[in-house]
Computed example of a mutant assay.
Amino acid sequence: MLPEGVLINGLTGEVSPGTGKYTKRLSELREIFQDQTELDRLVEVEGDPVVYEVIEYRKEGSDLFFGTTTMEPGKVSGEFFMTRGHFHQRRDMGEVYYTQSGHGVLLLESRKGETKVVRMDPGVCAFIPPDWAHRSINVGSEKLVFVWVCNVDAGHDYGDILKHGMRKIVVDRDGKDTIMNNPHYSL
Rank of each mutant, 00 (worst) to 15 (best):
G165S: 07
G85T: 13
E4H: 09
E60T: 09
T37G: 11
V149K: 04
H103T: 14
I169W: 12
K163F: 05
V76F: 10
A126M: 04
C150A: 15
H156R: 12
T37W: 03
D63H: 11
L144S: 08
E95K: 11
D121W: 04
A126H: 05
Y185W: 15
L107A: 12
E4N: 04
G94M: 11
G159Q: 13
E44I: 04
R41E: 14
M180P: 03
N181D: 15
R58K: 14
F81I: 04
V15F: 06
Y57M: 05
N138K: 08
R90G: 02
E109C: 02
K116D: 09
K112G: 07
V152A: 13
E4V: 11
E53I: 12
D131R: 01
T70L: 04
G67E: 13
V139N: 11
I179N: 11
T23N: 00
I55N: 09
Q34C: 00
P49W: 08
S16C: 01
L108T: 11
D131Y: 02
E109Y: 07
S77C: 07
R30F: 01
I55Y: 03
E31N: 07
F33L: 05
P183Y: 13
V96H: 10
D131P: 00
G47D: 08
G20D: 14
F66S: 08
E31Q: 07
Y52I: 09
W132A: 03
K75Y: 02
V171L: 06
G123L: 02
D35C: 02
E114G: 01
K112A: 15
E60A: 10
R119S: 12
W132S: 03
G18E: 14
Q34T: 06
K112E: 15
M1I: 00
L26P: 02
G20T: 02
D63R: 12
G18L: 05
P130E: 05
L29A: 03
S141P: 00
K21M: 01
L106S: 09
A126P: 02
K168G: 05
H156A: 09
V96L: 15
I55R: 15
N181T: 12
V105Y: 10
V170G: 10
W132N: 04
G5N: 06
D177G: 00
Q36A: 00
G102L: 12
G155T: 11
E72P: 00
L39W: 05
M1Q: 05
R25H: 14
Y22Q: 03
S186P: 00
T19R: 01
R41M: 07
V105C: 14
M93E: 14
E44V: 06
K59C: 01
S77K: 10
E4K: 14
K24E: 03
S136G: 10
D153E: 14
V76S: 09
I8P: 01
L2D: 06
L108Y: 08
G47Y: 08
I128N: 04
T12M: 07
N181H: 13
V139W: 10
R173Q: 15
L187C: 11
G78C: 07
T69N: 05
P183K: 13
L64G: 06
F87N: 13
S77Y: 12
F66W: 11
I169S: 05
E53W: 04
L11C: 01
P73G: 09
G175L: 12
S27C: 01
Q36T: 08
